[in-house]
Design a binder for these strands. Sequence first.
DNA 1: TGAGAAGTAGAATATATGTTCGTTAGAACT
DNA 2: AGTTCTAACGAACATATATTCTACTTCTCA
Lengths: 217, 217
Amino acid sequence: MQSIDTLSARQREILDYIEQFVEQHNYPPAIRQIQEDLSISSTSVVAYNLKVLEQRGMLRREGKVSRGISIAKSEVIALSTQISQVPLLGYITAGQPLPDPEELSSENAELIDVPADVVPSSKLTNVYALKVRGYSMIDALINDGDIVLLRYQETAESGEMVAARIVSENAVTLKRFYREGDKVRLQPANITMDPIYVAANDVRIQGRVVGVLRSMM
Amino acid sequence: MQSIDTLSARQREILDYIEQFVEQHNYPPAIRQIQEDLSISSTSVVAYNLKVLEQRGMLRREGKVSRGISIAKSEVIALSTQISQVPLLGYITAGQPLPDPEELSSENAELIDVPADVVPSSKLTNVYALKVRGYSMIDALINDGDIVLLRYQETAESGEMVAARIVSENAVTLKRFYREGDKVRLQPANITMDPIYVAANDVRIQGRVVGVLRSMM
DNA sequence: TGAGAAGTAGAATATATGTTCGTTAGAACT
DNA sequence: AGTTCTAACGAACATATATTCTACTTCTCA
């Protein structure tokens, strides 16, 4: 047998063929199909090479099962690029209250993809998206048209960026949250700008900002 | 036969089973497997219902092929969530020149997912990503740690946001580009800030900003 | 209430498909 | 040259799997 990560030409050929076949048909090829399409003289040759490929971990096989071949790689892809989506529940503006995240489960909401680099799929529960309207969030480095990703939570730890509703002003704002006694300091993400201070009981946290997506197409 | 979009309980059960089976095994189930696991009395019952499901377009079958079942839906998913990734080529700071996008094809670069909502996969050619270091891009509403998506191009139309290198200052900046005679106006995305004017021949466009990803985990 | 449609049963049949096994041809090594 | 190992052959074999056919139940609706 060759060194651990070298595949013979034939093995690579077979692997590619399987990959392509699954892509096209959504089900795996039979050994005979591989044999014929690749002009291999005998099914046993295919079987032999499949065994090698399996030992190398390039694919998995289910014994005695017709077409019981699955490519390991495609599983990895399926895992790493698993469909991570959150519902886009509506708009966020300075003046309006946020849409009710109770509709999180609503099936009719549009879904948007969230790359794992922004929010790991493991932490995607209770996360929803809102589209920003207007320029009121510019001090949070968020522009008109941006999509903000919020995790629904009513409390926050100091330093987290939250969607905060200031009750007395009936305004929603995105700022970093710092609890300071019976007051709350709301600090713009833009470090060149000054914080504002609000009475703690005048602030309702509506969610934590976990990401921002901006398209400039 | 029932109305066009009504499936019998058994049909739905079978469909769900297949879906789940494929999910788990990466290859489709055999008719007998469906029969046994769902405690159906005969394979012909399964065959009958599969035929109905196929006529409804819920799945596709390849005649006489073992396990030649593929769920239509999974194809759609495969298409709509196609893997859209771009290479992360390095960092962008105010002082440093940009990494050479020639390495675009370099296979060793880390890849990051780009949701279609940010950049449609059809327009993803020549796009690469850079991670922002420092706070020099705040006037472009871009923070330390953000990931900017750039399409490589050396010219730009007025109004596009570009990565511009100001030669005399050896600085890179992200601004909206406006050509005004032999001068160039570079306008911060933050509309509350003032533009700067530079001689046209002092500006090198390094790419167009097509998106921004910000993670706040 | 009765006939046709939709669905279920059971068994037999045909074939699609994985596996086994004895051989052979080279390559690598002694 | 002899041994050993990988890779490839070809055919026979066993069985996994789809299909077919007939008969029987339920359901639907005029």
